[in-house]
């Protein structure tokens, strides 16, 4: 069983949890922009949570999908059509007839995840590769519980259905909350001056159209960079907020630099990284400093909610459709 790329996109690539341990060679871990949506997509098709999925950041991608494929869409809401018929998000979908998937513009959020039951069977070096026209991606091994689910779906389908889905869905919208992005402040020597920091937390910033998987530049009130650039290099990670020499703050994303000599404001908390990643160019962002203890509590709450969803999905998938 293979997926064929009919029309490629530079903003579509297979992503997973990332590759740690190569920072010393100047290589950032990479990985999905919105890790929560990636995990949910995989859970819906009974894959391992960290299985590689297709991350789609733009419109126009077109894929030929085979009959017998089970897939799930999560993350940014966009129109995804299977031969002209819209596919639902946040639920497993069983493809009954070979067809063409077409990805439209995002209506909310930035990146969509497409997981397939069994995962994409790729060489180890492949994650992060963009989907080019004519590429074919084999589907990995289907486990027995996935095959049993397919059997149940097939039995309840009408003869003319091109796809069939379940009558339930999960709520993945917690990735898009309102309110400020929470930040653990940096108090190192390389941090920005107190006055600049206060300005940053009081102001709103517009996400630049130059944002990509490496960097989210912010536009708004200029900040004083401080003496960070004259000191020893500081580590940069997904979520690090740095003030550039021109006074503009930037947020480093999964493909960002590993170290830098700039002035740091702080680090976006792990629980808010998906929502930052899902911001679209032109959206306004505000920031709020919180303590490390609160950040850990936020992460624990988010993980507990994902665990709950996982249990609900597993229970629902065992039920008769």
């Amino acid at each position: 069983m293979k997926i064929r790329v009919e029309k490629g996109s530079l903003l579509a690539a297979i992503q997973d949890n990332g590759r740690y341990g190569t920072r010393a060679a100047g290589t950032s871990p990479g990985g999905a922009l919105d890790m929560v949506s990636l995990h949910l997509a995989n859970l819906l098709v009974q894959n391992r949570p960290e299985e590689g999925t297709l991350e789609i950041g733009g419109s126009g991608l077109s894929l030929s999908v085979p009959a017998g494929l089970t897939l799930a869409l999560t993350g940014a809401h966009r129109q995804v059509l299977l031969d002209g018929k819209a596919l639902p998000f946040y639920r497993p979908v069983y493809i009954r007839r070979k067809g063409t998937l077409l990805f439209g513009k995002a209506l909310r959020g930035r990146v969509t995840y497409l997981a397939v039951a069994g995962g994409y069977s790729l060489p180890l070096s492949c994650p992060g590769r963009t989907f080019a026209e004519g590429d074919e991606y084999a589907i990995g091994r289907i486990i027995p519980s996935q095959a049993a689910f397919v059997g149940r779906m097939e039995r309840c389908a009408e003869p003319d259905d091109s796809f069939v889905t379940v009558p339930w869905s999960i709520d993945g919208d917690f990735v898009f909350p309102d309110g400020p992005v929470r930040v653990v402040e940096s108090h190192a020597e390389s941090a920005v001056p107190e006055s600049s920091r206060a300005t940053f937390f009081r102001s709103s910033y517009l996400l630049s159209s130059r944002s990509d998987r490496r960097l989210y530049p912010l536009e708004g009130i200029k900040l004083e960079p401080g003496k960070g650039s004259l000191l020893a290099p500081v580590p940069l990670r997904f979520g690090s907020i740095q003030v550039r020499e021109n006074g503009d703050p930037v947020i480093f994303m999964p493909d960002g630099d590993t170290v830098g000599c700039g002035s740091l404001i702080g680090q976006v908390i792990l629980a808010d990284l998906p929502r930052v990643a899902q911001c679209r160019p032109g959206e306004m962002l505000t920031f709020q400093p919180i303590y490390q203890t609160q950040a850990e509590e936020c992460l624990a709450r988010q993980q507990a909610y994902v665990k709950q969803l996982k249990a609900k999905i597993e229970e629902a998938l065992q039920r008769r459709v």
Partner: peptide
């Protein structure tokens, strides 16, 4: 010891 966030320190 210099904390970076809830999941990293120097």
């Amino acid at each position: 010891f210099r904390p970076l966030n809830e999941a990293g320190f120097l």
